[in-house]
Design a protein around this nucleic acid. Structure first.
Lengths: 193, 193
DNA sequence: CCTCTTTCTTATCTTTTGTTAACTCATACA
DNA sequence: TGTATGAGTTAACAAAAGATAAGAAAGAGG
């Protein structure tokens, strides 16, 4: 196993004992993706969990002709193909690297065996799930109560670096507007400020 | 303990052994609310988990002067004050009965003791969490990719009874639009159809 | 270094939404 | 019974977003 990812993984899951984290690491596969490569695709039927050591992943889905960005997964964050893991249905979303990306991937079936064997890992699973759940709640609240312009301003405040790393058209669909509309929002900002 | 709620609880959690479900039930308090009563309020500092035996709850939050509906919790569904349970922060949302509502409420600290003692309850916890997580993902997808009109149509398709049970202004903020705008959307529907 | 392709911006027009206010209607209650 | 209160509808206007198309800027690949 490649050394930097080990340290980073232990650091990210520092609430775990190193030996527990190592149990997961040992089951993982280290993978490298060039920008624009598909990591998990629509129709995928393998339950998988991943940890981003370096780079950036965009999760998106198709609705008719257009694609919509669901989320960006940054360095040190975790992801999984939710339909498969949660609903046992083939994946409906695409996970694509935006930058050169290195990922540690673990088969979720293997994870489930670990969860059943190791109580502390099971607790960590709940902890990660709860954290991500809460993030999702906050995200949904923003869609309910903020205008697209306010959502853009909020993104500027909380994840400013994203805007330099991701094509604007992907930011636009992430905010729930068209690329043309985001361009206008940005123009209003330049004029106002 | 009141009998109907026991049967209904066992039915809802039929993937649990009855004796496990009963462990939870025994710790619960049965509560009755009239329409418009506050069940959990902003600033609440008690971790609580609830099961709706009968009725309907609206979860909402304030942003400036206005209130926004986050979710409706129907009969047989579960809820909890997320900030407290997940982030250990005072609750920022209000849980209010829309109809006469009967609820079984359990202190979440007590639940956590049960989770630690009973492995099968811990698994059920993950299961419920995962299911709700997935629902939230689907909900967020709708906000990203659908127009308010399409979201209204979708609500008509999936939860038609809600529209008869809840004041329209609450449906409006749930859909992310103003009550005036929802009224116009409904008018367009009447004309088109 | 130049060309091809894609992204971003800008413009125009249409549709939708927000805001405010007036009006109707139902309901509660004094 | 009359009156107040709040919800829903409608109207009028301003602001914002969608759709389409054309032009500018930036990147990719030869």
């Amino acid at each position: 196993m490649h050394s930097p990812v080990v340290e980073q993984f232990l650091e990210r899951f520092s609430f775990l004992r190193p030996e527990d984290a190592m149990q997961v690491l040992e089951k993982g596969t280290y993978k490298v993706f060039k920008p624009g490569e598909l990591i998990i695709g629509e129709g995928d039927r393998t339950k998988r969990f991943g940890f981003v050591e370096e780079g950036l992943i965009r999760i998106f889905f198709y609705k008719g002709e257009s694609d919509y960005t669901f989320e960006f997964i940054d360095k040190n964050e975790v992801f999984g193909n939710l339909e498969m893991i949660l609903a046992n249905k083939p994946c409906k979303r695409n996970y694509e690297s935006v930058e050169p990306t290195t990922v540690l991937m673990v088969d979720y079936h293997v994870m489930e065996v670990l969860f059943a064997q190791n109580r502390r890992l099971e607790e960590a699973r709940v902890r990660v799930l709860e954290t991500n759940f809460y993030e999702l709640v906050l995200q949904l609240e923003k869609y309910i109560s903020l205008t697209p312009e306010e959502r853009y301003r909020h993104l500027l405040d909380t994840r400013p670096n994203l805007l330099n790393r991701v094509p604007q058209k992907y930011i636009a669909t992430y905010l729930g507007v068209t690329p043309v509309s985001l361009s206008r929002i940005r123009k209003r900002f330049r004029v106002e400020k």
